[in-house]
Design a protein around this nucleic acid. Structure first.
Length: 504
DNA sequence: TTCCGACAGTGGGGTCGCAAT
DNA sequence: ATTGCGACCCCACTATCGGAA
């Protein structure tokens, strides 16, 4: 198939707003890809249609695309040729690799038309933004292969591999698709949690009885054990096996033939207390041993039996039997809000991020942000001053979007603590654009700097160490709750108040 | 007709290793 | 020794569509 056809499809998908119309366009392109009879080309094409590359990484990012050759006038590239070129980039390493990658990028872009260059840039930069990703492409695969959507989605969640599912569905039909079930050694999309402001409201969502698990602030890990083989997957199903040898060893030592475990890996101090996320993150990026500790909270498979459709109580009992206490997340079974609140307080006192409340009867909803799991974290708020704002992109083009936030310095001036674009409705965006332009002291294509007068109430999860900001601290997950026009900048919270929250 | 679940978009903070400067 | 880049970790929130109720 010609790459230009995919570029045209992507442009058409971008141009229509309805999901059904997007799916129809994607299905048409998938049928053409399948008719070519080349599974590699089909896999690559399916990935491109969902905004991704077939390769997990190629060593080329947005910055490498700043200087590009003029586009070709005629379309000559095939999907297969593009895939080969990208795969070759990923294989480049060692001294001189940057130059060779730049040459490879130039060669590929020089052979691409303007439309094709646009698609390539979206794919390589990871920001295609055509209003369709893996979710809609799953529907399109079902349409193109004439199989039920539910079969495709189920296979996608249980294998975590859209490309493989597309190839299987389009070449083998529903029968082959049915063979794609949970397999030990192959990552499946982890279940996610909804949010609630407090344990009582979380319990309303889950019902009782429920478990209250400590929410550890680390890296999610899905561990697969098959005989002596152990494989670890991240939340995004990246392979972590080589990076966490101590976790591999711990799983290998379990008295079991095969198992799939879900849990969290964190750094702890000498007394077993959790260290800040930044430390866990740093240790997880190294390939050393003895830096991290695993805590598991679910069991999805045990010695040949899938447990994902079993209720929580059954899975938890099996987990308790398999693992020593020290390898399990703290869990309290509750039947009412008072006990849940106590468990929440205990988790915070132990140094954890919060809790996850889990319905005792709920299955493990693979890949879903299921109502059966509800997380609760404490929320801090501060009144901060807007120091400037960056122009938005996409649907926020023309609006000032990303706010620069400052805390008051008692010695005069303001200390920037981070930025946020979250929590803003369209009407807030419109209002703040006009208001901030009225306070502007300078502006360019990137941002507007303003007199520090407008106060906003900001919610955030915590304070973390920062080398980027002058105060040495930054807010974690900052979002706007509302403007405080009743407050002057002189009444805003101080940098001392922020530091008092504690920088671990 | 209204409600609600799923999806996509809009970006934030950080860490590391590696290659180039 | 320092810097820029790519790839990964953690993530909140709003708008929209389209099927469910």
């Amino acid at each position: 198939m010609r790459f230009a056809e995919l570029a045209a499809t992507s442009a058409a998908v971008t141009a229509v707003s309805g999901r059904k119309a997007k799916i129809e366009l994607l299905a048409g392109a998938l049928r053409t890809l399948a008719a070519g009879g080349d599974p590699v080309e089909l896999a690559a094409g399916a990935a491109y249609l969902s905004g991704e590359l077939r390769q997990r990484q190629i060593g080329v990012g947005y910055a490498a695309l700043r200087e590009l050759p003029a586009p070709a006038s005629t379309a000559t590239l095939s999907v297969r040729a593009v895939d080969r070129a990208l795969a070759a980039m990923g294989d480049i390493s060692g001294q001189g690799s940057q130059t060779r990658r730049r040459d490879a990028v130039a060669a590929l872009y020089g052979a691409a038309t303007a439309d094709e260059q646009r698609l390539l840039t979206g794919l390589i930069g990871g920001e295609l933004r055509q209003g369709a990703q893996a979710g809609l492409l799953a529907d399109a695969v079902a349409r193109a292969a004439d199989v039920p959507v539910a079969s495709v989605r189920r296979a996608l969640l249980l294998t975590g591999d859209l490309k493989a599912v597309a190839v299987t569905a389009l070449t083998g039909g529903e029968a082959a698709l049915g063979e794609l079930r949970l397999a030990v050694g192959r990552g499946l999309a982890p279940m996610l949690a909804q949010s609630a402001p407090d344990p009582a409201q979380a319990l309303v969502a889950t019902g009782v009885p429920a478990a209250v698990d400590a929410k550890l602030d680390g890296v999610r890990v899905q561990a697969h054990r098959d005989g002596d083989d152990v494989v670890l997957f991240s939340r995004s199903l990246d392979d972590l096996t080589g990076r966490m040898p101590e976790i591999v060893a711990a799983v290998r030592a379990l008295p079991v033939r095969s198992a799939v475990l879900d849990g969290e890996v964190i750094a702890v101090d000498d007394t077993g207390r959790p260290r800040p996320f930044q430390e866990t993150s740093g240790r997880a990026a190294q390939r050393a041993s003895g830096l991290l500790t695993p805590y598991f909270f679910d069991l999805l498979h045990l010695d040949g039996t899938d447990l994902i459709d079993e209720p929580g109580t059954v899975r938890w009992a099996a987990l308790d039997e398999l693992l020593p206490d020290a390898m399990r997340v703290d869990r309290v079974l509750v039947d009412g809000p008072e006990v849940a609140q106590e468990a929440f307080a205990a988790a915070l006192a132990a140094g954890h991020e919060g809790v996850v409340v889990k319905a005792a009867g709920a299955p493990y909803e693979v890949g879903r942000r299921g109502a059966g799991w509800v997380k609760v974290k404490p929320r801090h708020t501060l009144d901060l001053v807007i120091l400037g704002a960056e122009w938005g992109h996409g649907r926020r083009r023309g609006w000032l979007s990303n706010l620069h936030l400052g805390a008051r310095d008692p010695d005069g001036g303001f200390v920037m603590l981070g930025k946020t674009f979250k929590g803003l409705t369209d009407s807030m965006l419109a209002w703040q654009t006009e208001r901030l332009l009225g306070l502007a002291v300078s502006r360019d294509d990137f941002m507007v700097t303003v007199r520090p007068e407008l106060v906003v109430e900001i919610a955030f999860d915590g304070v973390q160490r920062s080398t980027r900001y002058p105060g040495g601290v930054a807010l974690r997950f900052a979002r706007v709750l509302g403007y405080r026009e009743d407050k002057s900048a002189a009444e805003a919270d101080t940098i001392d108040a922020v530091r008092a929250l504690g920088t671990p």
